[in-house]
Computed example of a mutant assay.
Amino acid sequence: MTPQHPWTRYVALGDSFTEGIGDPEPGSPGGNRGWADRVAETLALGTENFSYANLAIRGRLLQQIVDEQVEPALELKPDLVSLSAGGNDIIRPNTDPDEVAARLELAVERLRRDGAAIVLFTGPDIGMTPVMKRIRGKVAIFNENVRAVAHRHDAVVVDMWALSELRDPRMWDADRLHFSPVGHQTIAMAVLDALGVPHELEPFTAEPLPVRPWRTARADDIVWAREYFVPWVVRRIRHRSSGDGITAKRPGFDA
């Protein structure tokens, strides 16, 4: 089979989004599959000696990703790197999206040191989420910065803000913070399309959603806040992370 792309050494960096949370798969390292695994599986087709590492760990802030993942990634001498970072910073109160993006750019500069192709991500439009919609403008500012960083460093941008499919609630896990399996599949397709790599991943065919009474929707919001949002806030107050004690699921090319 003729290779459809020039890359043989792919490293994925980031947080829960890249780790694949929301897409459980017992047979995958770490118990989750995710969009990055799907992308790697497609890139491996017809590519001799293809290697893939995933250093992402849930809950990581941008500086933690920079401090813990960038140098290990460079040591693997990748020719393709995906970096999704800053989302956990942006959703926290009092963070400056311009400052977060400036630190993201420093990471991109380091990762470009040996000429690897870089893939970056804008944040999705979270306007349909009752709590998260309050930071919609902040996410939009960060996204504009990401596009500017990508332009300056010749990086590829996967524009999740523009993916209208992600506004479908079925694209999201029950916690409304992570993507569901179909969400991860949709994002994998977007990554491959942005890279110009042909693929045979199947898109999600959405049936019309039933109309939900207002009272039902509000009751679901209350349950969500109690089961997912409040525990998240409590972890922030206690300076704990869902990634405490977790290690990278694919720390090297032989994993």
Results as ranks from 00 to 15, higher is better:
54 N>L: 13
89 D>K: 04
239 H>C: 10
237 I>C: 07
44 A>Q: 13
15 D>K: 02
59 G>H: 09
109 E>R: 14
156 V>K: 05
13 L>A: 01
16 S>I: 07
253 F>C: 06
125 D>C: 08
30 G>I: 06
110 R>W: 06
254 D>E: 15
101 A>V: 15
163 L>E: 14
255 A>G: 15
14 G>M: 03
28 S>A: 12
216 T>L: 15
170 R>N: 09
197 V>A: 05
125 D>M: 11
217 A>L: 11
4 Q>T: 13
234 V>N: 09
253 F>D: 05
252 G>F: 12
161 W>V: 00
109 E>V: 14
253 F>Y: 13
32 N>T: 14
98 D>N: 14
91 I>F: 15
83 L>G: 00
213 P>Y: 12
68 E>M: 02
221 D>S: 07
222 I>K: 06
71 E>K: 09
193 D>L: 02
187 I>L: 14
200 E>S: 14
204 F>C: 02
121 F>H: 03
81 V>N: 01
228 Y>C: 07
172 W>T: 04
10 Y>M: 01
194 A>P: 07
20 G>Q: 08
164 S>N: 12
33 R>L: 15
53 A>I: 13
138 K>L: 00
122 T>M: 01
87 G>R: 00
132 M>N: 04
119 V>A: 00
102 A>Q: 13
56 A>W: 00
73 A>H: 03
183 G>S: 12
37 D>W: 12
250 R>N: 11
210 P>T: 08
219 A>F: 12
243 G>T: 10
226 R>G: 11
225 A>C: 08
217 A>R: 15
40 A>H: 11
25 E>V: 06
193 D>I: 03
220 D>W: 06
148 A>S: 11
199 H>Y: 01
255 A>Q: 15
59 G>Y: 10
198 P>M: 06
129 T>Q: 14
60 R>L: 12
109 E>G: 13
221 D>A: 08
